[in-house]
Amino acid sequence: MTPRTLKRLHPAQRDDIGDLTTRRPLPGPAIPQLDPFLFLNHHGPQVYPPDNRGLPFGPHPHRGFETVTFILEGELSHLDSGGHESVIGPGGVQWMTAGRGLVHAELSPASFKQAGGPLEILQLWVNLPGRLKMTDPNYLGLQADAIPKVEADGATIEVISGAVDGVVGPFPSLIGIEMSVVRLAPGGVVTLPVAEGRAVFLYVVSGEIVVGGQAAPRWNLVELNDDGDAVAFESPAGAVVLLGHAQPIGEPVFAHGPFVMNTREEIIQAIDDYNAGKFGAVAG
């Protein structure tokens, strides 16, 4: 296998939401999207005091894409207009397909607001092609013990979707996304096959990795050249990395707030449908 080379680092931009520490590597000043990956918010790491207000993401709509949420520390309560409800703890993952339209809320459970504690969450938005933008909404949330792991060369690979060394992730992807959380011990090395032409999403959550002899510190999105059939990196001191890859969709992207469609007219229709109550509502 021939590893891809590093093209550019994109530091996450600080953009706090109230008292929630937030960094955003995508979109960034030099990278509007990494088709089909649209958006990543990195919340935390931080420690909430007792009697806190919790997360600020009350009921809001989405259409035309998917959200993948990684709970690294703390807890996240999910509720949506499709009737799905869960509280996911550390190491767990949520995968929500907004499709034709869904209202959801992502909040802290009462126990976390009362006791406080550490919190770190990643949320990735993944685009859908035009043929799938009006698909049925769906949701799956799994705790850490339901996510399979692959151990190799000083690294633990938590397989979210797709397959690594024959181990298949529990989250189905409508567009063939391969997604993993990679935890490297000091001296850990990772080499994984990635077909040429696929877009690679590589974000350093913590620590530092080395790609082709070049250092990539925490809170950087690593853009790779499409010049190989593998992704390879190592970490002398240890790191946590979000790694995904997918075939680019190659369609126009017209985004407005919580809606991601192909045209302005489709955005207007989404707003009209939401205002008409067609996305449903969150109970309670």
Rank of each mutant, 00 (worst) to 15 (best):
residue 191 T to A: 14
residue 213 G to E: 06
residue 168 V to Q: 05
residue 217 P to Q: 09
residue 156 T to H: 02
residue 176 G to E: 08
residue 116 G to C: 03
residue 207 G to A: 00
residue 160 I to T: 03
residue 151 E to Y: 12
residue 169 G to H: 00
residue 139 Y to C: 08
residue 142 L to W: 10
residue 154 G to I: 04
residue 204 V to W: 09
residue 120 E to W: 03
residue 215 A to E: 14
residue 203 Y to N: 09
residue 155 A to Y: 12
residue 215 A to C: 08
residue 214 Q to A: 12
residue 188 G to K: 03
residue 109 P to L: 06
residue 116 G to R: 02
residue 193 P to Y: 12
residue 138 N to C: 07
residue 110 A to R: 14
residue 179 M to S: 13
residue 166 G to I: 03
residue 199 A to N: 04
residue 171 F to M: 02
residue 145 D to E: 15
residue 165 D to G: 05
residue 111 S to A: 15
residue 198 R to D: 01
residue 205 V to T: 01
residue 149 K to Q: 15
residue 187 G to Y: 11
residue 160 I to L: 10
residue 123 Q to K: 07
residue 155 A to W: 11
residue 114 Q to F: 08
residue 196 E to Q: 15
residue 116 G to S: 04
residue 185 A to D: 15
residue 123 Q to T: 09
residue 125 W to K: 08
residue 175 I to T: 10
residue 206 S to E: 14
residue 202 L to D: 03
residue 200 V to C: 01
residue 185 A to M: 12
residue 145 D to N: 14
residue 217 P to K: 02
residue 184 L to C: 10
residue 193 P to G: 12
residue 114 Q to Y: 08
residue 184 L to T: 05
residue 153 D to H: 13
residue 181 V to D: 05
residue 124 L to N: 06
residue 213 G to A: 06
residue 183 R to L: 08
residue 129 P to F: 01
residue 196 E to T: 13
residue 158 E to V: 04
residue 196 E to S: 15
residue 209 I to V: 15
residue 112 F to I: 11
residue 211 V to G: 06
residue 182 V to Q: 07
residue 136 D to T: 12
residue 163 A to W: 07
residue 159 V to W: 05
residue 181 V to H: 12
residue 124 L to W: 09
residue 174 L to P: 08
residue 207 G to S: 01
residue 195 A to T: 09
residue 203 Y to E: 05
residue 151 E to V: 12
residue 180 S to V: 04
residue 194 V to M: 02
residue 169 G to F: 06
residue 133 K to C: 05
residue 121 I to A: 03
residue 182 V to D: 08
residue 192 L to W: 10
residue 117 G to K: 04
residue 193 P to A: 13
residue 225 N to D: 14
residue 112 F to G: 00
residue 134 M to E: 13
residue 198 R to Q: 14
residue 140 L to Y: 07
residue 117 G to C: 08
residue 166 G to C: 03
residue 136 D to K: 15
residue 149 K to T: 15
residue 158 E to K: 10
residue 223 E to W: 10
residue 113 K to D: 10
residue 208 E to W: 07
residue 204 V to H: 11
residue 203 Y to K: 02
residue 189 V to P: 04
residue 146 A to E: 15
residue 169 G to C: 04
residue 118 P to G: 03
residue 205 V to Y: 02
residue 219 W to D: 15
residue 186 P to K: 09
residue 195 A to M: 08
residue 214 Q to K: 13
residue 208 E to V: 00
residue 152 A to K: 15
residue 187 G to V: 10
residue 208 E to Y: 07
residue 115 A to N: 13
residue 164 V to I: 14
residue 219 W to R: 13
residue 208 E to T: 13
residue 154 G to V: 06
residue 182 V to Y: 11
residue 175 I to E: 05
residue 185 A to N: 13
residue 175 I to D: 05
residue 164 V to F: 08
residue 113 K to V: 06
residue 125 W to V: 09
residue 172 P to I: 04
residue 168 V to P: 01
residue 216 A to P: 04
residue 201 F to M: 09
residue 166 G to Y: 00
residue 123 Q to A: 03
residue 129 P to D: 01
residue 159 V to T: 04
residue 216 A to I: 05
